[in-house]
C-alpha cells in the first residue's frame, strides 16, 4: 500500500492549510460600500478582509442591536478547532505511514474519512448555531428595531452558504481557500482508500 499511504499522507497534510488560510468568508456589500467589507473565518478566530472591516461591521451592526463579532478568546471553538484539525492531520499522517509499510489495511483510511466527515458536520452545525445566535439574539435597546411585513421582529442571520439580501446589504457566504484545501485533502484520503484497496487485493489475491 505504498501509493495509498503516500496519498493518505498528502491528503491529511492538506488539512494544515486551515492554519494559514480561512475556512469561510462572508462579504457584505451595499451601495455605499462599493468595496465590500468582509470577514474571514479561520479555525483560530475571525479577521477582517481589510484591516478595519471588523470594526466597521460592528459599527454598522450596533444600529440593529447585533452583538460584536467575537474575539478568539470569547469562543471555545477557536481553541478546540485547531486541536481537532491538528490531531486529525497527525492521525492521518500516522495512518498513511503505517499503511505505507503495510502495517494496517485500507479500512483505516475510510474510517479516518468518516470520522473527519462527522467532525466536519458537527463543526458546520456549531457554526450555523453561532450564526443564528449572532443574527437573532439582538439587543432589546437597539437603535433600529426592524420588523418583517407580518410584524415579527426582523433577524439578521447571515447565510451559511450562498447569497442573501439583508436590508441594504448583499451578503455572500462561501467556503474559502482553507476549506477547499481541506475538501481536496479529504477527497485524497478517500482516494487513498480505493487505491489502498486495489493494492491490497493485488498483493493478497494469491493467498
Amino acid at each position: 500500500m505504498k501509493k495509498a499511504g503516500l496519498i493518505m499522507i498528502i491528503g491529511s497534510l492538506l488539512l494544515l492549510g486551515l492554519f494559514k488560510f480561512p475556512l469561510w468568508n462572508i462579504m457584505l456589500g451595499a451601495p455605499q460600500y462599493p468595496d465590500p467589507m468582509g470577514m474571514n473565518i479561520y479555525i483560530t478566530g475571525i479577521q477582517g478582509v481589510q484591516e478595519f472591516d471588523i470594526q466597521n461591521i460592528d459599527g454598522l451592526n450596533h444600529y440593529i442591536g447585533m452583538q460584536k463579532i467575537p474575539k478568539p478568546e470569547a469562543m471555545w471553538e477557536f481553541e478546540v478547532f485547531p486541536l481537532v484539525i491538528g490531531g486529525m492531520a497527525a492521525l492521518g499522517v500516522l495512518l498513511g505511514i503505517l499503511g505505507f509499510f503495510g502495517k494496517l489495511n485500507y479500512w483505516w483510511f475510510l474510517s479516518w474519512v468518516l470520522l473527519m466527515t462527522l467532525l466536519g458536520i458537527m463543526g458546520m452545525y456549531d457554526f450555523n448555531a453561532w450564526l443564528t445566535d449572532y443574527g437573532t439574539n439582538l439587543d432589546p435597546k437597539a437603535i433600529m428595531k426592524m420588523t418583517n411585513l407580518d410584524g415579527s421582529p426582523m433577524t439578521y442571520k447571515p447565510p451559511l452558504f450562498g447569497h442573501q439580501k439583508m436590508l441594504n446589504f448583499d451578503v455572500d457566504s462561501y467556503p474559502a481557500l482553507g476549506a477547499y484545501l481541506m475538501f481536496a485533502g479529504m477527497l485524497l484520503t478517500l482516494l487513498a482508500f480505493f487505491v489502498g484497496k486495489n493494492e491490497w487485493i493485488k498483493k493478497y489475491k494469491y493467498l
Binding site: D35, E51, N56
Partner: peptide, 10 residues
C-alpha cells in the same frame, strides 16, 4: 475641544 474621530472607515 480636542476632538478625535474614531472612525476607521473611508
Amino acid at each position: 475641544f480636542h476632538v478625535t474621530n474614531h472612525e476607521q472607515d473611508f
